[in-house]
Design a protein around this nucleic acid. Structure first.
Lengths: 103, 103
DNA sequence: CTAGCATACATCGTATCACGAGGTATCATA
DNA sequence: TATGATACCTCGTGATACGATGTATGCTAG
């Protein structure tokens, strides 16, 4: 999928990936792979932006001798998902118009 | 709808608007208004880009004493729509994942 | 006759974000 | 010891939406 289509949707996708269970970077990429291949440079940039926007918080936990950085969705993060659901109604209408389906 | 979501989809939306019938700028904006409000600066920039990419061609026609610039979709433009349909399958999958629908 | 609105077209500059390239680090395996 | 997997990270580039601003003309109401 071309990169321009991904703008505006990837950050919410990442939030959705950790909505039900905290996760760490490498695992998020693996979990999302069936849906959409996400590069590490993209993911870590998004995670940083989400953290700065207070939509996620982080903590570190050791696993088999290594540190992993875990990401936890915040209430602002959940709001972002809800807001996206609103915004995306228009997106879906435009999409349907393009592919020729009734609205 | 936030501007980032619109990237990658607006140009195809414009192509879809003139797919079945040639149109001119002001009318395209009006026709698309129920779906998505499109500003003139956005539309004319997109039309220019589509023309440069040879996905549309243009001609001028007089109407009630005024010149109107008409846009006609080209075969490359139709291919762009088809390509978008392919690309957007992933988009829809990501969307469904976010809103929690089954794929 | 004039102001305001609708119609019609157009460009510049700014902001935003995906991601390739490149990087560090460590464990497991052959 | 080399390679691949695992795990995290930043910089710089390219693409595109659109606000601001602009020109132009016809219609309508006062």
């Amino acid at each position: 999928m071309e990169s321009q289509l991904r703008r505006g949707i990837l950050d919410v996708c990442v939030l959705a990936a950790i909505k039900n269970e905290d996760s760490y970077g490498y695992k998020i990429i693996k979990d999302l792979k069936p849906l959409s291949t996400l590069s590490e440079s993209t993911l870590y940039t998004i995670l940083k932006r989400l953290e700065e926007g207070e939509m996620i918080t982080t903590y570190t936990r050791e696993y088999e001798g290594r540190q992993r950085k875990y990401y936890h969705i915040s209430s602002l993060g959940r709001e972002r998902i809800e807001q996206f659901k609103e915004d995306s109604k228009e997106l879906i209408n435009v999409y349907k118009f393009i592919v020729g389906e009734s609205l």
